[in-house]
């Protein structure tokens, strides 16, 4: 897996699933919480990536 994006998506998905099952008990709440955590991981990565764009080294 040499794609940065794929690694990000796989990591975020697996961690989100674990967080959702640890933090919520109801199936619907788990799905909602898991999606929020997943979106948080992905969006914050893009945001931090763009913030670092002017400082390549």
């Amino acid at each position: 897996m040499t794609s940065h994006l794929l690694a990000l998506l796989v990591f975020s998905a697996l961690v989100s699933v674990v967080f959702a099952f640890l933090q919520r008990d109801e199936p619907k709440a788990r799905v909602q919480f898991g999606l929020k955590v997943f979106a948080g991981f992905v969006l914050s990565t893009f945001l931090i990536g763009w913030l670092m764009f002017p400082f390549p080294r």
Binding site: F11, L14, V15, V17, V18, F21
Partner: peptide, 13 residues
């Protein structure tokens, strides 16, 4: 359910 989910997700990671 929790056991299998953790086994698969953390094992895969």
């Amino acid at each position: 359910v929790k056991g299998i989910v953790f086994l698969v997700a953390i094992g895969l990671l």
